[in-house]
Amino acid sequence: MSRTPADGPFFHGTRADLRVGDLLTPGFRSNYRPDVVMNHVYFTALRDGAGLAAELAVELAGGGDPRVYEVEPTGPFEDDPNVTDKKFPGNPTRSYRSSAPLRVVGEVTDWTRLTPGALQLWRDRLSALRSGEIIN
């Protein structure tokens, strides 16, 4: 895994209640395909992109409201191959993944929430893609 030249800050969207200093690690079920255990932890340099991920994330036991956290990679990371070049040439979503943990450095509260209609459009789109492959 090679480090992509990318500037932070970086963000991770989830429904988990995290604290500063917590580590996000691979090895958990995908928020979008619960039958897949992820080998990487995903993040983005786009605050609202992390917000979208948080809103689309499956509500897990103990998790509730969508949350966005600023995170810092603790090791090398690469472009997310699930969106880079496969779906979008280059990396316009500024999405990345790492097999090393991400450290939570703070919670972000000023991200843009989707309208209920826009959120439903994303859920429908995601549902249609569920049969597709996740590059893990």
Rank of each mutant, 00 (worst) to 15 (best):
M1S: 14
V68Q: 03
I135W: 00
A16W: 10
P89H: 13
S99Y: 11
T112G: 03
G63R: 08
M1E: 08
E72C: 04
R97S: 00
P73D: 07
L52M: 07
L121V: 09
W111S: 01
F11V: 01
T109Q: 09
P101Y: 15
P73H: 13
L52N: 06
N39R: 14
H12G: 04
F88P: 00
F11C: 01
E78Q: 14
G106T: 11
Y96G: 07
P34E: 09
N82W: 09
L129S: 09
P73I: 08
T109R: 11
L56A: 06
D65F: 04
R97T: 01
T93I: 06
A6G: 04
T14K: 05
W111T: 01
V37F: 10
Y96K: 08
V58H: 11
N82F: 05
A16I: 04
P34T: 06
T74E: 15
T44R: 01
D17R: 02
N31V: 05
Y69N: 12
S30G: 12
A6V: 09
E70F: 03
L24M: 15
G13Q: 07
P89C: 10
P116M: 08
V105G: 08
I135E: 03
T14L: 13
H12V: 00
E55K: 06
M1P: 08
T4Q: 04
V83H: 10
K86N: 10
K87A: 12
P9H: 05
G90D: 11
R3H: 09
L18N: 13
F43V: 02
S99G: 10
R113E: 12
D48K: 07
L56I: 03
G75I: 08
H12D: 02
F11D: 04
L102F: 03
T74H: 13
V36L: 10
P116K: 07
T93D: 06
A128P: 00
L18V: 15
